[in-house]
């Protein structure tokens, strides 16, 4: 039985015979990936691709390109699986790589504002449901996009990716206190932007 079959068998067992069997930790999956276990890598991909997609989109990348960045990030994870140390949190490792992929992307191809404008135009192209709700969401998205990256990144990592402040500090390589103050400042700025929008 190859590793992939073994993993499938294990999953079936978990869902039927052993419901309380814990899901494998990311760190275990990474060690198995480093040893060439593609089924383990597949589990990592399934577990994190959606969150990564949202991270890139909320950082202002258009949806098509965001999916390419998801692929790029996870392939970088695969290539560097041998360097991962189980003592480090996997999400710190993952989002450090994702952030580097994003920075490369922004440097190479486009300004962030272009991506936001493109996305806004796509939304403006018209859909037949919930226009008011969509307008509100767009306003929130637009407000988010107006934040400087220094404030936007910690907010996205905290609010959408569910990362702890300590972990965000590790990914952004800034002190813990700076993480807290940036998120707080971001909240102030967002509230202001959203309130202004409501008035107009």
């Amino acid at each position: 039985m190859d590793t992939r079959q073994a993993a499938c068998a294990c999953t079936r067992m978990n869902s039927t015979c052993m419901p309380d069997h814990p899901e494998p930790e990311d760190s275990d999956l990474m060690l198995r990936t480093a040893a060439g276990d593609m089924a383990a890598f597949e589990t990592i991909v399934r577990r994190h691709q959606q969150k990564l997609m949202n991270f890139f989109v909320r950082m202002g990348v258009n949806t098509g390109r965001a999916e390419e960045l998801v692929q790029d990030t996870l392939l970088r994870v695969f290539r560097n699986s041998g360097r991962y140390r189980a003592s480090a949190r996997f999400t710190t490792f993952l989002y450090t790589i994702a952030r580097n992929a994003l920075i490369d992307e922004l440097r190479r191809n486009q300004r962030e504002e272009d991506a936001i404008a493109e996305e806004t135009a796509r939304l403006n192209a018209g859909h037949d449901c919930g226009l008011a709700g969509m307008q509100a969401r767009m306003d929130v998205r637009s407000a988010l996009s107006k934040l400087p990256p220094k404030l936007r990144e910690p907010v996205i990592l905290s609010v959408y990716q569910g990362m702890r402040y300590e972990e965000i500090a590790d990914v952004l390589k800034i002190p813990l206190g700076t993480v807290k103050s940036r998120i707080f400042l971001a909240m102030r700025a967002l509230r202001n932007l959203l309130d202004e929008n409501t008035k107009t």
Binding site: N54, A66, V70, F78, R137, V140, L194
Partner: peptide
């Protein structure tokens, strides 16, 4: 309130088959 506003942004769904494409690319690269 701000957190609620932020939560109103819907999730962007990955296209079907993305997992398979990534794993295939990794296998190919390997």
């Amino acid at each position: 309130e701000t957190l609620r506003d932020l939560a109103s942004i819907p999730e962007e769904k990955c296209s079907p088959g993305l997992t398979e494409r990534i794993v295939a690319a990794a296998e190919k690269e390997s």
